[in-house]
Simulated scan of single mutants.
Amino acid sequence: MVCRSWRRVSKDPSMWWIIELDDLASEGMCRRAIDLSDGGLVEIFIGVESEYWGEAILAYMADRSSLLRSLTLSCSSFFLGELFREAVVKLPLLEYLNVPGLKLSRKSLEVVCKSCPNLKTLKLHHCPFSRDIDNSIALIIALSMPGLRHLELCGHPLSNTGLNAILDRCPHLEYLDLRECLHIDLSGNLEKRCLERIKYLRRPNDYPPETEEESYLRDIFLDSGLFDPLYD
């Protein structure tokens, strides 16, 4: 129930290049929004808590959006397994991947590395307080993502070994978030090395990770060139 002018505008595919899907939308509405982009979708946020149709929407989008550059999955019910991997291989232009609170397995991350060579931003937020050191994710990133510029590993159980590998193999890295990484010890030369290499460093004991809205606003400021992260 809109005016004719708005109805004409709403049918323009460029109106649907960026979409946000959450629990207020039905599955049919989500599919319709993807269809309206006519294959031109470049950014999508999926915050659907229904495991069944949330993953169904991810698959539906991947089949119709090969130009996608930004993907955020903010759904506690998602399991980043086979369906996720099947979707990622269809997104070769992906530059931004954000999966807050979701565990990305080594196998899934390897598929991301192989399928998305243009990836520049990777946000992996885990629940902290893991007592066991695990550098597997850090080593995959170091060996397979040399083009990364922005990396968030909040709560990951990597140690100094994993961090050094990332610093060695990711020469373009500018932003590194290590908040709540309890096995990282930045005393001595490692902190000096990070400060020399990284423009914007969040240490393990810095204040807790920001909300999705705060993260989104910060990214806008960083991209604008009007914001100096050293003086945040």
Rank of each mutant, 00 (worst) to 15 (best):
S5V: 12
D22F: 03
A25F: 13
G28W: 09
R31E: 14
R32Y: 08
A33T: 09
D35Y: 04
D35R: 11
L36Y: 06
S37W: 03
E43A: 15
I44G: 02
G47D: 01
W53M: 08
G54V: 12
L58W: 09
L58V: 08
M61R: 03
D63L: 09
L68Q: 06
L68Y: 09
S70N: 10
L73K: 07
L73M: 06
F78A: 10
F79V: 12
E82Q: 13
F84G: 11
V89H: 01
V89K: 00
L94S: 05
E95P: 01
V99N: 01
L109S: 02
V111F: 02
V112M: 01
K114P: 00
S115G: 06
C116Q: 05
P117T: 11
K120H: 09
H125N: 10
P128C: 05
P128G: 03
D134V: 03
S136D: 07
S136V: 13
I137V: 14
A138T: 06
L139M: 07
I140H: 00
L143K: 10
S144A: 14
H150P: 00
H150F: 10
L151H: 01
C154E: 03
H156W: 04
N160W: 03
N160L: 13
H172S: 12
H172K: 12
L173W: 02
E174G: 10
L176D: 02
C181P: 01
K192Y: 05
R193C: 08
C194T: 07
I198N: 00
L201W: 00
L201G: 05
E212A: 15
S215R: 12
R218Y: 06
I220C: 11
F221T: 07
L222A: 10
S224P: 11
G225L: 13
D228S: 09
P229T: 09
